Computed example of a mutant assay.
Amino acid sequence: MTMSNELRLLPWTGPDGKPCFLSTDDNDGHMSRLADNIESVQLGMATELLDQAIDMLTAADTSPDDMRLLVKGLTGALRDTLRVATSRGHRLATSETRYS
Rank of each mutant, 00 (worst) to 15 (best):
M67Y: 10
L43Y: 02
I38R: 12
S32C: 08
V41G: 00
R68N: 15
D51R: 13
E48I: 09
H30N: 09
I54L: 05
D16N: 12
G76Q: 10
G76S: 08
T24L: 06
C20E: 12
T62R: 11
N37Q: 14
L70V: 00
P19Q: 00
A77V: 01
M45R: 13
F21W: 09
Q52T: 15
T47R: 14
E48G: 05
M45Y: 13
D36M: 07
L49M: 11
T62K: 08
L50Q: 10
P15H: 09
I54T: 14
L50G: 08
Q42L: 09
T47I: 02
M67Q: 11
R79M: 04
T62Q: 08
L70C: 07
L70I: 03
N27A: 10
S23K: 10
D36L: 14
A53W: 00
R33S: 09
C20G: 02
D16T: 10
G17P: 00
A59R: 15
N37C: 04
C20K: 12
P19C: 03
T58W: 02
A46K: 13
H30M: 09
A60E: 00
D61F: 01
Q52K: 15
Q52G: 02
M45V: 13
D26T: 02
H30A: 13
K72N: 15
A35V: 07
K72F: 11
D28Q: 15
S23N: 13
I54G: 08
S23F: 01
V71W: 07
M67L: 15
L50C: 06
S23E: 05
L57I: 01
